[in-house]
Computed example of a mutant assay.
Amino acid sequence: MDELNGLSDQTRDIYEANASAYDKARSRTLSEARWLTRFGDGLPKGGSVLDLGCGAGEPIAAWLIGEGFAYTGVDFSPAMLEIASARWPDQDWQLGDMRSLKMEKRFDGVIAWNSFFHLTENEQRETLPRLAALLNQGGTLMTTVGPHAGQTTGTVAGSTVFHASLSPAEYAHSLEANGLRLTAYLAEDPDCGRHSVLMARKD
């Protein structure tokens, strides 16, 4: 049995139990603004955006909604979605897990900020084709990953959560195999809280 089985489920349980504390602690300083701007600039005005692992919505959903995109937020934590839907009751909030998500709709942009890296390496390999399939032709994917292949941990409200990453080369190869072209990658961006950010386009 794979010893990593269930780690993403443990992460979900931690976010569910600590949704309010996480939301209160989540920075609103928008160090992500440069990447969000670049992401948005590649989309049609008022285009459709799918936010996977949207959490309680601050600050990523707030930015995307404020920019006028047709927004859909998906998260695997009901408690997180309850907070988000109370803030923006007119938006499309859906309970779901990116590892098994099936949607008929396709989107101009898919973002998975601080969520995709909670999947194990094998889950990431299996999920990338799902993300590619959710994009319209010409659409853009943006996600946070790790600076190199391997596993590490982070914390949510004092609880340890799992992080993993493939290598940049493997991401590029997997994206290409699924019809996407890597357009940007920056490891540990010093101006964005040392996030490692990947962007790709479905040409």
Rank of each mutant, 00 (worst) to 15 (best):
E58A: 12
E58R: 13
P59L: 10
I60E: 00
A61F: 05
A61L: 05
A61K: 03
W63V: 15
W63L: 09
W63I: 14
W63F: 14
I65R: 15
G68I: 09
F69K: 03
A70C: 12
A70V: 04
A70P: 02
Y71N: 07
Y71F: 15
V74M: 06
D75S: 13
F76Q: 13
M80W: 01
L81N: 09
L81I: 11
E82G: 11
I83T: 06
I83R: 15
S85H: 09
S85E: 15
R87K: 14
W88K: 00
P89W: 14
D90G: 08
D92K: 15
W93L: 03
W93V: 00
L95H: 11
L95M: 06
G96Y: 02
G96T: 08
G96I: 07
D97M: 08
M98L: 15
M98I: 12
M98Q: 12
S100L: 06
S100P: 00
L101E: 08
L101R: 08
K102M: 06
E104M: 05
K105W: 04
R106F: 12
F107W: 10
D108I: 00
D108W: 04
D108Q: 12
D108R: 03
G109W: 07
I111C: 09
A112M: 08
A112F: 08
A112G: 13
A112D: 10
W113F: 15
N114Y: 14
N114W: 11
S115T: 11
F117R: 11
H118A: 06
T120E: 01
E121N: 10
N122L: 12
N122S: 13
N122D: 15
E123R: 06
E123Y: 08
E123Q: 10
Q124T: 06
E126P: 00
E126N: 10
T127Y: 04
T127A: 11
L128K: 02
L128G: 04
P129D: 03
R130Q: 09
L131P: 06
